[in-house]
Every structure is written in C-alpha cells, then in structure tokens.
C-alpha cells in the first residue's frame, strides 16, 4: 500500500514536471481543493463530544512520548470535541466552546456580551466598511444573544455545524481579533516579525479565512472579549504537556487542546 502510494507520488511529480505553466497552476489548485474536500468530507466542522481516551488511538502504542502526554490529559480532562482542520479551527473551537460553556454557566456572559456588542463601533472607528461588517456583526450578535435567550445545546451545535452560519461567525471573530490588534498596535507591533506593519499583518494573516492562528491571535481575541482560555500544548517538545493561560493568571473558562497546527475543545473533569 505504502509502496503504491510513493510510486503514485513519483508518477505525479513526473507528470507535473512536464506540464505547461497554466496546467501546472491548475493542477496544484485542483490538488489543493481536493485535499480540502477530503478534509471536509471526513470531519464535521465540529464533531461530537468524545471520551478523551479516544486520543490514544490516534498514535501508535509505542509512541511513548505522546501516550504519556495523553495519560496526563486524561487526569485533567474527560472529553474532547474535535474541529475540522481547515485553518479556522481556533476560531471555531473558541466560538462554540465559549458559548457552550456559557449555556450552563452565565458568569462570563455579561462581560462577553458587552464586549461583543461594542466591537462593531470599534470596527467603524477604524473605518471598516459598515456595508460588509454589519452583516457579519448582526449574525454574530444574534448567536451570542441566543445564549441568553435560552437556545438549546443542539441548536447551538447545529449553528456551528452549518457551514454558512459557522463561517459567518468565524469571519467576525477574525475581525474582532484584527480590531484589537490595531487598537493596541504599539503593544502588538513588537510581536510581528517579517517586516510587516501591524495593519499588513491583520490584512494578510488575521482577516483572510482558512489561515491558522498563532499566540498573538489568541491574546488579541481573548483580551477583546474579556475571555479566559487555557491551552494545553501537546507536541514533540518536552516530556510533559505544557499549559498557557490567556490572559496569564486568569481562571480559565474554556480549555483547548493544541496539537501542531490544530485546536480542539477540551472538557475538564
């Protein structure tokens, strides 16, 4: 099987090498979109809540480093909910995870709702076009308000599983993040490398869909909404998991699992 596959890869490379330019570009784009389609077909935008022990099956039994980290995760967390790996996973995990939490625990709701409501005017102050932003905001705030109005868990889940609604929500979270970065640009500029200005960074790495998030996105989004998030990092570094709280020293409301390039939702025991 593996042999077949690598043989196919070689054939594919030869095939690409002989192609004229435009066919090459088209072939690369087709391949990319077929990879995206494959990811879309194999994972929901948001999966069901799974027992945390399921994670063990994703790594080989003799992968000591990961198996040990998963054991430690199991001590703290009972369940995990996976998100689609489409580059929007942090925003989708955050959006659903936070609202889901506030369905049962309303402690954070007033401040979250207030920050959410004020975000539109802040974007207008930065001269964003009300014409497009308004649509995203109205959709976003209606989902946020539905939490107060007693939306059911199933309805909330369906909202985040329906591609149009779900992506509208993600777009607006990206705008809030961008707005926060620009409003506090003196601070955030220090974290931008590659010679981009903060505005360029926002236009090329925050606002476009399907682009992955970094620390700076998490810091900006949590501080814009007054949200408290703990991220459990599970990667090849170190013998044990590491944890980061955003903001530091806060009592986390939402827990996320980070594995290189991807975020899922965690449920504490």
């Amino acid at each position: 099987m593996d042999n077949d596959r690598s043989h196919d890869n070689l054939k594919e490379q030869d095939y690409l090498k002989d192609m004229p330019n435009h066919e090459f570009d088209e072939a690369v784009n087709t391949m990319q979109s077929s990879i995206q389609d494959e990811i879309a077909a194999s994972t929901d935008l948001l999966g069901d809540k799974l027992d945390i022990s399921m994670l063990k099956n994703e790594y080989s039994a003799d992968d000591v480093q990961y198996q040990k980290k998963i054991q430690n995760l199991e001590k703290r967390y009972s369940h995990v909910r996976k998100t689609r790996g489409d580059g929007n996973c942090f925003f989708r995990a955050f959006g659903f995870g936070y609202l889901e939490h506030m369905l049962s625990d309303k402690k954070d709701y007033p401040i979250f709702q207030e920050n959410a409501s004020n975000s539109f005017q802040k974007l207008m102050d930065l001269k964003y076009p009300s014409f497009t932003v308004e649509d995203f905001f109205e959709n976003f705030i209606s989902v946020v308000n539905s939490v107060k109005e007693g939306v059911s868990h199933t309805e909330l889940l369906n909202t985040f599983r329906e591609e149009g609604m779900s992506n509208y929500f993600v777009v607006y979270l990206r705008l809030i993040t961008s707005c926060q970065l620009q409003s506090d640009s003196d601070f955030y500029q220090n974290f931008i490398d590659g010679g981009k200005t903060l505005v360029e960074f926002c236009k090329t790495e925050v606002e476009p869909m399907y682009l992955e998030s970094d620390h700076i996105h998490i810091i900006a989004l949590t501080s814009a909404l007054g949200a408290c998030v703990r991220v459990a990092y599970m990667d090849r570094g170190g013998d044990d998991l590491s944890f980061h709280d955003f903001p530091e020293d806060s009592q986390p409301t939402l827990h996320l699992l980070y594995r290189p390039g991807h975020y899922d939702v965690l449920y504490p025991r």
């Binding site: 076009p129 497009t132 995203f136 090329t204």
Partner: peptide, 16 residues
C-alpha cells in the same frame, strides 16, 4: 492584485 486571491477577506466587497 493580492486582495483578489491570497489576501481576500470577507469584509472586502465589490466596492472595495
């Protein structure tokens, strides 16, 4: 023009 591909954002529009 980069906003027509890589740097497109849903907040952009025909007008922009």
């Amino acid at each position: 023009l980069s906003i027509l591909t890589d740097d497109w954002s849903p907040a952009l529009s025909v007008e922009s």
